[in-house]
Design a protein around this nucleic acid. Structure first.
Lengths: 236, 236
DNA sequence: ACTACGGTTGAATCCTGAA
DNA sequence: GTTCAGGATTCAACCGTAG
């Protein structure tokens, strides 16, 4: 398939304001080099609950059933010998692992040690200061660069600068992208949120396809993208 | 129950060379303060533990189903407001999490970052340099000492000094014991291996009950225990 | 460039009351 | 019964500002 044919099905480097289950139908089989996505964990998380005007609303599509329906579509869209990286918390990890195993070979589970945190039951629980990234192989995907361990330390995004309640650091996504894809690759994020995957793609010279149901976050993501492109143009 | 009555059922500070499923029957209900165990997943239990119904005979070689029989016994033996800490690898974590959830409230999952090590598929996988400890609550168990995070760094046992293939560092087990039990507590390890849990109990002034099917490892464990007791006597 | 200090926050958890 | 939604709670770490 030529780039022109491809573009007629779905245009690269755009974020589509629609349900990813609908939009992914337009992605040709086996055409994506990497899936990198952070689905809502199904916990109806509400950040900043104490304040009377919470900064963020509960996420759209925050349930297990939509998340699980996306996984087979991710598999279909992926090229052979590529990976899908899916974020999870320790609470939904077990279910997601089993669900993803139905389609993929899970060959690694990365622990993102984010430090800090610490709300919850202070007397009976430890603070949970990590998240999980499940590395799902379709075929066999080579590691780029040096072979490293599975615990990745990276500081959280500064809460004052957060544009999305579950925003991931750009650096973390860039490292994942570079470890599991080549320059020029096409990266799919089914739950784009504030667009961090797109920014990481711009910074690492990859193409992205993004879906985000919430118009508000689409706008935020597009602003960030414009800014990142402008900064990149200055740098070159 | 007095200590004397208890001792008539099962004696503390001993490692029993038997199948834990048999031995645990002698532990009175709700009498153990902490379970700390690192179950293997390649061990076949005696088939006479299975039901007589022939349809279950098909599962005779299913390691999980036999291993999972220990979890309800652990629950029974535990006091209220106590925890069972069960080690897992990222591969069996999902299944064990779901199985343990049937009996316990899982309130934390600790990542033991052990650094280094790790063979496997060098080209396609990251090295796995952590293990998992699932913290399973029966009731509500208080954290002792300071509230800390869920990623615990601790170096592996020096391979030259290892007496058992999956031996855990004494320091790691001591920290877990001190976080989830008080001095004088009774700690149960259903799969004692080379006896590290017993050593950690001696070093932190806890009592232990241990089971180990392999006579060879029982002997090794008892040697280590004699040595640890002698060292402790010198120190006091 | 540093420290000191006070405000803010956390993919949380519990409890209560309503549906 | 049983799920669901809303409000109160808690501390250590981090951020931003002042000095």
């Amino acid at each position: 398939m030529t780039r022109k044919d491809y573009d007629e099905m779905i245009e690269l480097n755009k974020i589509y304001n629609e349900d990813c289950l609908e939009g992914m139908k337009r992605i040709p089989d086996g055409s994506v080099d990497l899936v990198l996505t952070d689905p809502p964990y199904g916990i109806k998380y509400k950040s900043n609950m104490r304040t009377k005007s919470p900064k963020f609303e509960v996420l759209a599509n925050d349930n297990n059933s939509t998340r699980f329906m996306v996984y087979p579509e991710m598999y279909r869209a992926l090229k052979d010998n590529s990976v899908a990286i899916v974020f999870a918390s320790w609470k939904n990890y077990a279910e997601d692992y089993i669900e993803l195993s139905k389609y993929f070979d899970i060959k690694n589970v990365i622990v993102w040690w984010k430090h800090g945190g610490g709300i919850g039951d202070l007397k009976h629980t430890l603070l949970t200061d990590y998240e999980i990234a499940i590395v799902c192989h379709k075929g066999k995907c080579k590691i780029r660069g040096k072979r490293c361990g599975s615990v990745w330390e990276c500081n959280k995004v500064n809460p004052n600068k957060m544009l999305h309640p579950t925003q991931k650091p750009e650096k973390l996504l860039e490292e994942l992208i570079e470890k599991y894809s080549d320059s020029g690759a096409t990266v799919l994020d089914c739950f784009m949120g504030s667009g961090t995957t797109a920014i990481a793609c711009i910074n690492t010279n990859r193409n992205y396809i993004g879906f985000e149901l919430d118009k508000h976050y689409c706008d935020i993501a597009n602003e960030r993208i414009q800014k990142a492109l402008a900064e990149k143009a200055v740098g070159e």
